[in-house]
Amino acid sequence: MKVLLIEDEDDIRRVARLSLSRVGGMEVVDAASGVEGVHRAEEESPDAILLDVMMPGLDGPSTLAALRSNPRTASIPVVFLTAKAMPEEKTRLMDLGARGVLTKPFDPVTLPAQLRAALEGR
């Protein structure tokens, strides 16, 4: 499984990348901004996208909208990664068309499993 990880914080991106690849055994491509993420998604056609919500420039929801507006990326399932764990925030993000919402801080040991669960709609 190929996952595109879009996260502006370098260290968090690296930890998540290690978690997904080394614990989850996934193929990981990453991007450090929303704009880069949109390009990478088009280039790499990943099976899923793990998308940070709070980013400078194009933030998570705007990136999602950009992905949805492009037919080549419109159907790739997107799971948000957010520091705001409030139920209303989760609801808001799901309403934007996300497949799931994972919260930060995440446990890298369980992150791949959480991502899989979200993608399977659990």
Binding site: D11, V15, L18, S19, A83, K104, P105, D107, P108, V109
Partner: peptide, 23 residues
């Protein structure tokens, strides 16, 4: 608090990965 949380997330993640032995 919010500014502290981001670096701590990275630290915790890294330590967790190290401790789990997957690395």
């Amino acid at each position: 608090s919010h500014e502290l949380r981001t670096p701590l997330t990275s630290i915790r993640g890294s330590l967790s990965l190290l401790g789990s032995g997957v690395l």
